[in-house]
Design a protein around this nucleic acid. Sequence first.
DNA 1: GTCCCAACCAAACAATTGCTTGGTAGGCTA
DNA 2: TAGCCTACCAAGCAATTGTTTGGTTGGGAC
Lengths: 190, 190
Amino acid sequence: MPRRDELLAIAAGLFAEKGFKNTTVRDIAEASGILSGSLYHHFDSKESMVDEILTSFQDELFAKYDEVLASDDDARSKIERAVRLSFEAIDQHRHEVAIFQNEADYLGTFDRFAYLAERNAQSRDVWITLLTEGVRSGALRSDLDIELTYRFIRDTVWVAVRWYRPGKKLTHTAVADQYLTILLDGIAHA
Amino acid sequence: MPRRDELLAIAAGLFAEKGFKNTTVRDIAEASGILSGSLYHHFDSKESMVDEILTSFQDELFAKYDEVLASDDDARSKIERAVRLSFEAIDQHRHEVAIFQNEADYLGTFDRFAYLAERNAQSRDVWITLLTEGVRSGALRSDLDIELTYRFIRDTVWVAVRWYRPGKKLTHTAVADQYLTILLDGIAHA
DNA sequence: GTCCCAACCAAACAATTGCTTGGTAGGCTA
DNA sequence: TAGCCTACCAAGCAATTGTTTGGTTGGGAC
């Protein structure tokens, strides 16, 4: 792995754990075994680091969403795939997901990170499309408030990044199974 | 309202909106129409401000949890009440909830805020008790992973603070209704 | 053997941070 | 009128912040 990518990975870990503002360039440097000034040989600012971390992650993620949308599965299968895809992302890119979850609001106030709001809108489009299709096809109950259900699913899925740790008791597919069961059929006794 | 409480409310708003570390004492002072040094007439540190904000909120919240636990409603009613209670808190103390959601992890690393972890454990106890009771009484499905269901509910409910705004289209009771419908019966067509 | 270049160091910079100090304005009480 | 108290100001301090600058090192290319 190129040194540059190593440093980005280290920075991502710190940003995810302590927050962006709360992580100093000296923290990143120390964790990397170098001095803070040396970071500026690789990157031109601390902001550039998060920027790069977030964009490359999102490019990858949204490509997968597009795949699901474009497929000719039935509505329910698409929703299931979209949910599983998110837990997979949490499993494989948990630092990036955490940063996006925790810092998007703050970073979004800068022009440079305007794309965060766009991606947010894009993700909303995906889900509203899937849910609308689900209701129309009869796969989902017709009394759902689509907008609210979208927020419910979005929050519910991504917030798992706060406690999920790969390699522990639960695999990400097991978590996705349980979440989908609850989401689709509820927790009440049938 | 005493000046001191006014300042605390202003600080809470800023902490919730921009984060604790990201809010300077000068921000708080400016929003209050005074100079930063003058804040130290009322409080002895910035940390004391969050501390006071969080403890008073949590004291109030957990007193209500205890009421639910102590009541002799059936299991399902208790769960419903506990959920509604949370949305009520989001409605009435959204700054405090937001601060707790966003900063608990970071603040928890300081000795002074060790009580945050205790409160977290306490909240877990409440929910595990309710869910266990629910499964045993037959109100909830017996194939639930209790621990995971607890996290699901906890996250799902509190994360709504990110988008819910009082006085908008949806009342907090309407949101609670929808959330409970999804949580209990799922989104799939019956 | 010279050159180059990526990776780093050492030291400093200005700005911003939380916080301290000594003082003052004005209202209430005796 | 004197004393006191709450709420504030004005000015500054030391520490920490992101960033810059000029120089050094070690390995590979020619």
